[in-house]
C-alpha cells in the first residue's frame, strides 16, 4: 500500500526484534495487572492492536472496545472499526460524542484536540465504571509522545492510561506485531479526525466536515490509496498525495479528473500540494511546529 513500507519494521538486527518482543511481553504483563480494560477504539492501527492484545491477555469478558462516533469521525474509519471488531471478536460498543457542539472545539483553536478528547473520555469513563472495567486505555504509542498532542492532557486529567507508550512500543513495532497477528490494520495509513483538515481558527462545522469527507471519498473512488489528505481552505481544496499518486495526478489529464471529483464535492478551486502528504501539515503551515527540511 502506498505510504506504508512493505517491510514495516526495519529488523536491522536480532537485538531490535528481541527488544520488540520484550515490549510486547511487557504489554501483556501490563494488561494482566490491569485486570480489565475499556479501550478507546478508533479502528486505527494502534487501538486495534491494543484491543487485540487486551482480548488475547484478558479474554472478551474483561475487555470492551468503545468507538466514539461524531461528525469528525470518518465513515470509512467507522466501517474499518466495525470490521476489525467483528473479525477479531472484540466486544464493541458505539456511542455518540458531541465535540462539534462544543463552542471551544468548534472555534478550532490550536489545542482543539484537547476539547475533543475531553468529550470522548467524559463519555467513556462512566461506561467503564458502570461495567466494572478497571482501567480506561487509549492507543497512544511511544512515538506519539514526541508529537504535539494536546489531547494527551485530557486523557491524563481523566485517568486514561496509554499502555503502548508506557511499555515503549513504537508505531513500527505495532505495525509489525499487527502484521504477525493478521490484523488488517497493520498497513493502514494514519487516520486522524476530519477536523485535522481544517486550518486552525477556521470554525469546524458539520457541513465542512462532511465536505472534506465527500472529497476524500471521491479521491478513494479514483483509486487514491495510502496517506493523503484534502485540506480545507474555504473554497479551495488543497490535496496532499503520496509520491506515487502525486506523479499520477500531476499529469494534466489525471489532474483534470481529480479536479472534477473535488468540484463535485463542493470545492470551487482545487490545488495539489507540490510536496505531497505531510502528517501534521497544518501545524507546520500555521507555525505550531517548525517546518522540516
Amino acid at each position: 500500500m502506498t505510504g506504508v513500507p512493505s517491510l514495516p519494521h526495519p529488523m536491522a538486527s536480532s537485538e531490535v526484534a528481541a527488544a520488540m518482543r520484550d515490549k510486547a511481553a511487557r504489554l501483556h504483563d501490563w494488561l494482566r495487572d490491569a485486570g480489565s480494560v475499556l479501550v478507546g477504539f478508533s479502528g486505527g492501527v494502534d487501538s486495534a492492536f491494543l484491543a487485540a492484545a487486551a482480548v488475547e491477555t484478558l479474554g472478551t469478558a474483561r475487555v470492551l472496545a468503545v468507538v466514539g462516533r461524531s461528525a469528525s469521525y470518518p465513515n470509512a474509519q467507522w466501517e474499518t472499526a466495525r470490521r476489525v471488531a467483528r473479525e477479531f471478536a472484540f466486544p464493541l460498543l458505539e456511542v455518540d460524542t458531541h465535540e462539534v457542539d462544543d463552542p471551544q472545539y468548534a472555534a478550532n483553536p490550536v489545542n482543539r484536540c484537547y476539547f475533543c478528547k475531553s468529550e470522548l473520555w467524559h463519555v467513556l469513563t462512566p461506561i467503564a465504571r458502570e461495567r466494572g472495567l478497571a482501567v480506561v486505555v487509549d492507543g497512544t504509542n511511544a512515538d506519539d509522545l514526541a508529537d504535539y498532542r494536546p489531547g494527551t492532557a485530557a486523557a491524563k486529567e481523566q485517568g486514561v492510561r496509554s499502555p503502548l507508550a508506557e511499555v515503549g512500543l513504537t508505531k513500527a513495532d505495532i505495525r509489525e506485531l499487527s502484521r504477525e497477528r493478521g490484523l488488517p490494520t497493520w498497513s493502514q495509513p494514519s487516520s486522524p479526525c476530519l477536523s485535522s483538515r481544517i486550518p486552525y481558527h477556521t470554525a469546524v462545522t458539520t457541513e465542512r466536515l462532511r465536505q472534506v469527507e465527500r472529497a476524500e471519498q471521491a479521491l478513494r473512488d479514483l483509486g487514491v490509496l495510502g496517506d493523503f489528505r484534502v485540506r480545507h481552505h474555504g473554497d479551495l481544496a488543497r490535496v496532499e498525495l503520496s509520491p506515487g499518486d502525486l506523479d499520477r495526478f500531476m499529469e494534466v489529464g489525471a489532474a483534470d479528473t481529480l479536479r472534477g471529483a473535488l468540484v463535485g464535492a463542493g470545492y470551487a478551486r482545487v490545488a495539489i500540494d507540490v510536496r505531497g502528504f505531510r502528517s501534521g501539515s497544518l501545524n507546520v503551515l500555521e507555525g505550531v511546529v517548525a517546518a522540516g527540511a
Partner: peptide
C-alpha cells in the same frame, strides 16, 4: 513559504 500548491485549472 512552508507550502506550495499548484492550482488545477479546467482545460
Amino acid at each position: 513559504f512552508t507550502h506550495a500548491a499548484l492550482e488545477l485549472l479546467p482545460p
